[in-house]
Design a protein around this nucleic acid. Structure first.
Length: 229
DNA sequence: CCAGACGTTGTT
DNA sequence: GTCTGG
DNA sequence: CCAGACGTTGTT
DNA sequence: GTCTGG
């Protein structure tokens, strides 16, 4: 699944990479993005708009949105049918920019955080859905969720599932496909090619959602060797 | 008909 | 154990 | 996702 | 809002 991620790239790099023509926010480097936080997403509203929404989708039908447990992931296999996602899948798809995500690998009963990236740390986007609701003051609050797919062979040893990473050529299809042609959008939800993916262990500092510093993406300290090679 | 759920992950 | 907060 | 709280009463 | 369970 995907419960933490990073955007180390700059605002300018995001704008250029995703051909954003209207930016409602100025994004900043993030080393440990956690659920419920505001995240930058790219939405198509007659042009590509970069805006900030809360990570954790709250369905529009929720009568007590404040008590609803936000849905941070949506399974690709079922999102076309699930009442919580179906409508957003048809009409409210978005790109969620990222350049890495964290998974916790269980090794001998211990959980080791691992950062997974594309080669060269390239900027990419998760396939996302968003939903709107009104807060008590009548303000529209927008929330989003990250779609998950089965892990590819590279990631399988770490975790059974992974976020849906869009191939660059699929981004426009994901954003612009009409509600009556969702098979086209569904076709974008594939596991990413193994040979494009890299990963490394990081410090357990990343465990705490309060920590959002460069140390979160630093490779974990190498074990001390008594007899260096 | 009305009431109540509507989600994912990981772990057991 | 389970829920809330980040 | 993980970390951290999880309660009441009365007094300040 | 829409589906499922009773």
């Amino acid at each position: 699944m995907c419960g933490r991620y990073t955007i180390v790239h700059t605002h300018k790099e995001l704008i250029a990479r995703f051909r954003v023509t209207k930016a409602l926010i100025e994004s900043r480097a993030r080393f440990n993005i956690a659920p419920t936080q505001k995240v930058p997403v790219v939405i198509y509203e007659s042009q590509r708009v970069l805006e900030e929404v809360s990570w954790g989708l709250i369905p529009s039908w929720s009568k007590e949105p404040d008590k609803f447990k936000p849905l941070i992931n949506a399974r690709a296999e079922t999102l076309a049918e699930k009442p919580s996602f179906r409508s957003a899948f048809k009409k409210r798809r978005c790109l969620i920019p990222a350049d890495g995500f964290f998974e916790w690998q269980t090794k001998a009963g211990k959980k080791i955080p691992v950062r997974i990236t594309l080669k060269e740390g390239t900027l990419f986007s998760f396939a996302g859905l968003y939903e709107d609701r009104k807060d008590p003051a009548g303000e529209t609050l927008r929330t989003c969720t990250i779609i998950t797919v089965p892990a590819n062979e590279k990631i399988a040893p770490i975790h059974e599932r992974m976020p849906a990473i869009l191939r660059p050529e699929d981004e426009e299809i994901w954003l612009a496909t009409k509600p009556e042609e969702t098979e086209k959008a569904f076709g974008c939800l594939k596991s990413y090619p193994d040979d494009q993916i890299e990963y490394y262990e990081v410090s357990s500092l990343v465990n705490s959602a309060r920590v959002d510093t460069e140390e979160c993406i630093a490779p974990a300290a190498k074990q001390l060797r008594l007899l260096p090679e």
